[in-house]
Design a protein around this nucleic acid. Structure first.
Lengths: 146, 146
DNA sequence: TGTCATCCTACGATTTCACTATGATATGGT
DNA sequence: ACCATATCATAGTGAAATCGTAGGATGACA
């Protein structure tokens, strides 16, 4: 399961993807609109900036903008930045590989082989689905009476 | 990521699937062979029994046996018993469904739609891969000098 | 200079994780 | 009956992660 942090990050970033990118979005606005605790979201946005998914503008009229066009920001990138590996076991992770310290032979491990195919399928979706597609999905908030 | 508990459970159960099912396997033997802390494995096996994945025999010469033929025990069953939902968000879980309390519309949620397809792919693998297949995979321990 | 945004450090409460300890209970052999 | 040896049940422990909150420093703009 994703952490709350990860879910909030996805919501905030799809919010940014839907927003007009000429002016930055402010944390307070995103927090209210997406029902995310403001201070918590502040910390999350800082993480996303450090992961180069958004850029920030400080000072009055500051806020956040996507670091790249939404077509180039994948769900996989976001989840890795907030929750770490997509893989179910570290020894099949491409980005966070770590050997299982109790595993005799990686090549022969039956569990590993199954988990590797799971990882491939998950990555096939999450690394090919961008914020642009999510933004286009008519989701977000049903704009009241419009 | 799976918990250590979940990884140990998978290892222990593939061990059982490979073993001769006429006599039960004892926790101590599994623990040594699979490099799992004995007391911890004891607790895990109790969980697996409560989840009806294994049956136990008490007393001397007791131990554990698979509750069903290995063809009928799926990776998905095991992971759900130890780690909970396969899904990345609770609102797309089939077995552990829970509404996202901050979600306006489930049907329109873009994130949910993506996560639902991930869940389907993961389940397609883990709920169709049985212990029998894992046991057949020539993994386990390379039997020394044979 | 004042306002209002991000940024940063630190803290706290709660929960989960990975085990461990202790003893009860069941079974079979002698 | 007794002992060895297995599972079973409950509880506890130390470390880490999770989900936030508090308070203030820093930067940008009018």
């Amino acid at each position: 399961m994703l952490s709350q942090r990860g879910r909030y990050a996805l919501k905030a970033l799809t919010h940014l993807a839907r927003a007009d990118d000429s002016t930055p979005c402010q944390v307070t606005a995103i927090a209210e609109s997406e029902k995310i605790p403001r201070k918590f979201l502040e910390a999350i946005m800082s993480d996303l900036r450090r992961a180069n998914l958004v850029t920030s503008l400080r000072g009055k009229f500051g806020g956040y903008v996507l670091a790249r066009p939404p077509e180039q920001i994948m769900f996989g990138d976001i989840i890795r930045a907030t929750d770490g590996p997509l893989a179910l076991v570290p020894c099949v992770s491409k980005n966070f590989y770590r050997r299982c310290d109790d595993c005799v032979s990686e090549e022969l491990c039956a569990i590993r082989q199954v988990m590797a195919s799971v990882r491939d399928e998950v990555s096939a979706i999450l690394d090919r689905t961008s914020l642009a597609e999510a933004a286009a999905m008519a989701g977000g908030h049903p704009v009241s009476a419009e």
